[in-house]
Amino acid sequence: MIARPNAAAWRKRLPLLLLGLTLAFPSFAQTTPAEQPTAVIAARAELAQWSDPLDALGTLKADESVTLSAKVTETIESLEFEGGERVEAGDVLVRLDNDEAQANLRVAEALRDERQAAVDRLAQLQQRNLGTRADAEDSRAQLRQAQAEVESLQAQLDNFQIKAPFSGEVGFRNISIGALVSPGDELATLDKIDRMKLDFQVPEVALGSLAPGMSLTATSAAFPESDFQGEIATIGTRIDPVSRSVSIRALIDNPQRKLRPGMLMEVTIARRQRQALVIPEAALIPEGKRHYVLIIDASDDDRVTRRQVRVGERRPSEAEILDGLSPGDLIVSHGVERAHDGDRVRLLGIADDDTSVRALLEADRNAGDA
């Protein structure tokens, strides 16, 4: 019967057996190949204009808006607009039939001329001591009365012309020539929209951080690719006791007249504007309440070092860094999940406003294919 070695004996013989295999078959002792540097894309920590955003929803109003109506009851003689066009201040939009008013004015002018002649005759007689002073004064009083009547009728003639009180865009025409109109009837609408009023509300807790003159950005679903710049003009004097909000009015320039009264706008107010150190948000490595970044040291053969940073405010795809970085520091922005503290990395490029991540990846892929 052959005796089998126990487990202790096997443990003693195993190293010798492995050594023999290594000497007999050198390929058995292959070493692990050196790891290739991790490909990453970097970004630089840069100073940029920053603010704490406050979002709200607002409604646009025209800078000036009016509904034009007649002051007298009369028929429309002519219309000087079609609707939708721009008019200047003082342009006549509607003319009413004023034949009767013109006739009354001619009667008043004839009476004034008659009384002027009477004043002139009495003045000549008085110079020859043939007329009394009382008759002359009475005649001059009647002349002033006739002149006042003429001026009154001339002023009333203006009521037969509806003019634009300011430059703006006239609305649709809903009236026709020959229609009888009365005071209060809507003849035309006029809006001044080269500058717009934007009214919105914010919570009262934000009141201390707002002031007239602060800038804001407004967007509309009608023009998703456009941002409209404005500033706060007026802050309401009262807090709504139900909603606990305060009303704000801002002014937005509208030189291309894209915006219209009544439009819904998304508003972002730029509070506490300042210079801040900014990095891509993708570069942050969160661990609980702490955040880290990987700094690339070009002088150490592109080796990365893990560093804790203190994060401030955030905005889409960017984060404000309060402590832990300096302007110009090169950090890993894409590939942070594959790189580790102390690793060497292969830098594909630096993403910035002129170079996108897509362009860097395509360039690396093309270089590999070549």
Rank of each mutant, 00 (worst) to 15 (best):
P165T: 05
R128M: 13
D135V: 15
S317G: 13
Y292P: 07
S226E: 15
D113F: 06
A206E: 08
D354I: 03
E281V: 10
P37V: 04
A282N: 15
D369R: 11
S245F: 00
D300P: 06
V311A: 15
F28L: 15
R257E: 15
D135Y: 04
R274Q: 13
D353Q: 12
E266H: 13
Q36D: 13
A29F: 09
D302S: 11
I162V: 12
G324C: 06
A298P: 01
I295R: 14
L16N: 10
P261E: 04
I279R: 12
F228N: 07
N129D: 13
D158A: 13
D199S: 10
A117D: 12
Q145G: 07
R106P: 05
D302T: 02
I285N: 11
E77D: 07
R346L: 08
I269L: 07
R195S: 15
A117M: 06
I331H: 04
D297L: 02
E287K: 11
F200M: 00
G368N: 12
T59F: 03
E149G: 12
P286N: 07
A222F: 11
Q116I: 03
E82Q: 10
E266C: 04
E80T: 02
F172C: 00
S167R: 11
Q126H: 05
V87T: 05
R121E: 11
D354T: 12
Q229L: 14
E64L: 15
E320A: 14
D138T: 15
S167I: 15
A123G: 09
R344V: 00
L198I: 05
P286R: 12
V246E: 02
N254H: 00
E74T: 15
L347Q: 13
D297Y: 03
A339C: 08
P5A: 00
S78R: 07
G168Y: 05
L47M: 14
R86I: 13
I193P: 02
L54A: 14
R244F: 05
T217S: 14
E109K: 08
S176T: 13
E85A: 09
V87N: 06
G236Q: 00
T237I: 09
P26W: 15
L19D: 11
V304E: 04
D341L: 06
D329K: 10
V246C: 06
T219S: 07
A221Q: 11
G328V: 15
I239E: 04
S69M: 09
M265G: 01
N129S: 13
S317A: 14
L216W: 05
L96Y: 06
A7L: 13
N366V: 01
A283P: 10
I162R: 09
D364W: 00
T132F: 04
G168E: 11
A7Y: 09
L130R: 04
A56Y: 12
V72G: 08
E82P: 04
T67D: 05
I321T: 09
S226V: 10
V181Y: 05
G328S: 10
A282M: 10
N6C: 02
F160Q: 07
L143K: 10
A118N: 03
D135S: 14
D364H: 03
I350F: 01
D353I: 11
V119M: 04
P5T: 03
T305D: 10
